[in-house]
Amino acid sequence: MIRAILPSETHARKAQKILKQNGYFSEIIRVNQFRIGCGYALRIAGEPEEIQMLLLSANIPVRSLERERDSS
C-alpha cells in the first residue's frame, strides 16, 4: 500500500476523487505527523510514481508519498 500525506482533509478528499476517476480506490486516514501534528493521508493500492504524477498534475500538494511498511 502507498501512503500519501496531504496538507488537509479537503486536499485528501479532492485527491481521493481524482484517483477514483483514474481507477484507484483509496481510504482517507488521519495521521499524526512528526513535529507537525494532525494531518490526513490516503492509503492507496498502486504504483507511487503514477499516483504522484496524477496528484501533481491536479495541483494537489503532496507532502510525502511512500510505501507502507509490511506489518506482518
Binding site: P7, S8, E9, T10, H11, Q33, R35, I36, G37, C38, G39, Y40, P61
Partner: peptide
C-alpha cells in the same frame, strides 16, 4: 483547524 496541530501558527493553506 484539525490540521498541523503541533505548529504554533495557523496552517498557511486554504481553507484551513
Amino acid at each position: 483547524s484539525g490540521s498541523m496541530s503541533l505548529q504554533p501558527e495557523m496552517p498557511d493553506f486554504l481553507p484551513d
